[in-house]
Design a protein around this nucleic acid. Structure first.
Length: 456
RNA sequence: GUGGUUGUAGCUCAGUCGGUUAGAGUAGUGGAUUGUGGUUCCAUUGGUCGUGGGUUCGAAUCCCAUCUUCCACCCCA
């Protein structure tokens, strides 16, 4: 008996309408990327696990999809590992490849491998799927597309500004109102130092990140659970009070605390410079300094970004930041980069909820030519060729069936014109063109049809 | 990974207290209408009731497991 087909958890098929809409998103983003001088690359779906492991923190390693080695993958394995069922220890023996978790780490690997061919600073963009073994839910899939743009080999904060401009431009073109949240890892490091818990930077940032979601009390409880002392937390509390001020006031307020701390002051300087640049360009959307923005990825060292839609409840739809030494782990130190990534699948869900997709995405074929069979069909093929040579998309219905059926086909596929070229029409050279939306039809020579459709 | 939730025709969903042959709308197919679609009318094809076990004289319905969906946590795009 035939088995019922299915696809893996958290993956999806994309049908024609969905693809038209997805391409609208991809096209918008890549047009903006190209406009800003970024060049497209692609990297393999799978990477060596040695490239991926340890780059995303402990949680990230768990969420990596690992690929079983080919062939007799159990030969030569230490028997005790199998007997003891130590699957964690066994993993490195039976799997040496994994599906990529994001596009940034493979990009760092790419830069190191191709360093001699690359002209720095290198601006690249990359639109490809990534995979995470997370539990799926709304806006979270196991296979999803990221749309990355990174500038590597330049420490200038102009890059941060350019990324902000691109974020603003993309969401302007997509008609989504957003807030661009920005923070700086150096400020967070300064805060951690100020409260006397620099070794807990990651725990502090992860807890802080949840402030607006779970509230101050729950954040403090989480910090205590992570071994942060109560005296540190007391010193932190006044810093949590700055959320309702404007960006400049927040920075001024912070200075009081971070005055003697070089890292923190450097972070504040960077933010001041970025905001000063931002003043000089016109942005559609608001930029907001958000001290609770932390981002889980460990490799960020400077500015960090996150974008949230204002009119739809959804996780972040774009994120990114500066990383000073991501290539260092692959043996190429002191190369700073900064990048952003749009989450195309979440943007899709946001646009769907806003009813924000263009309405005419499905009209890919302009004309359906009715098939009458025999010599008329052969005649129809040359009409189709003439139309295509003029750049008009058309198709000849492949079967000779009742023409009511053929009309219905055009109707369901929303093909706006049906061309009838039967024996009557072929005799006079004037073809019957029916406008499916108006219900009208007229007799036209082929040249007139081309003219009409081209001016359409 | 933890807790909860969901699954019946291609799609959207009914299905009573466990009781005969599981229904509707829509889509599909044929016709009313042999060269004209959308509207209308008539007829009609689709079901391992997610899957596997169990309880029962009898299971879509109750129980267990598993997969899937969605949600919360964790984390993230």
């Amino acid at each position: 008996m035939a088995q019922k087909p299915s696809i893996p958890k958290g993956t999806r098929d994309f049908s024609a309408t969905e693809m038209a809409r997805r391409n609208y998103i991809f096209d918008t983003i890549s047009q903006v990327y190209k406009l800003f001088g970024f060049q497209q690359i692609e990297t393999p779906a799978m990477e060596n696990l040695s490239t991926l492991m340890g780059k995303y923190g402990e949680e990230g390693d768990k969420l990596l999809f690992k690929i079983l080695n080919s062939g007799d993958f159990l030969s030569g394995i230490d028997r005790t590992k199998i007997q003891d069922i130590q699957s964690q220890k066994l993993t490195s023996d039976i799997s040496e490849k994994g599906l990529r978790y994001d596009l940034t780490v493979p990009f760092a690997r790419y830069v190191v491998m191709h360093r001699n061919e690359i002209q720095f600073p290198f601006k690249r963009f990359q639109i490809q799927p990534v995979w995470r073994a997370d539990r799926p839910q709304k806006g979270r899939y196991r296979e999803f597309y990221q749309c990355d743009a990174d500038i590597i080999g330049s420490q200038s904060l102009l890059n941060e500004i350019e990324l902000i401009q691109m974020i603003d431009e993309v969401f302007k073109r997509l008609n989504i109102n957003v807030v661009i949240k920005i923070n700086n890892r150096k400020i967070l490091a300064g805060i951690a130092e100020y409260i006397g818990a620099p070794e807990h930077l990651i725990a502090i940032t992860v807890a802080l990140d949840k402030l607006d979601k779970i509230g101050e009390e729950a954040v403090i409880n989480e910090m205590i659970a992570n071994g942060i002392s109560t005296s540190s937390i007391e010193k932190l509390k006044p810093l949590l009070k700055v959320q309702n001020q404007n960006n400049a006031d927040k920075l001024e307020y912070l200075k009081q605390f971070l005055l003697g701390l070089p890292i923190g002051m450097k972070g504040i300087e960077e933010m001041e410079e970025i905001f000063a640049f931002a003043e000089t360009i016109k942005l559609q959307n608001k930029i907001q300094l958000d001290l609770t923005l932390a981002r889980g990825l460990n490799y960020y060292t400077g500015a960090i970004f996150e974008v949230a839609a204002l009119d739809v409840k959804m996780g972040s739809i774009c994120g990114g930041g500066r990383y000073d030494n991501l290539t260092g782990i692959f043996g190429m130190p002191d190369v700073s980069g900064v990048g952003i990534s749009f989450g195309a699948d979440r943007i899709y869900d946001v646009l769907l909820e806003l009813d924000g997709f263009p309405k005419n995405q499905m009209q890919n074929t302009s004309i359906l030519i009715v098939n009458f069979g025999g010599s008329e069909a052969i005649q129809a093929m040359s009409i189709a060729t003439a139309l295509r040579n003029a750049g008009i998309s058309c198709m000849l219905f492949p079967e000779t069936i009742k023409i009511a059926k053929q009309f219905n086909f055009a109707n369901v596929l929303q093909i706006p014109y049906v061309l009838i070229a039967g024996s009557n029409e072929v005799e006079t050279g004037k073809l019957n063109l029916k406008d499916m939306n108006q219900g009208t039809q007229e007799l036209l020579f082929i040249d007139q049809i081309i003219e009409k459709l081209q001016n359409h």
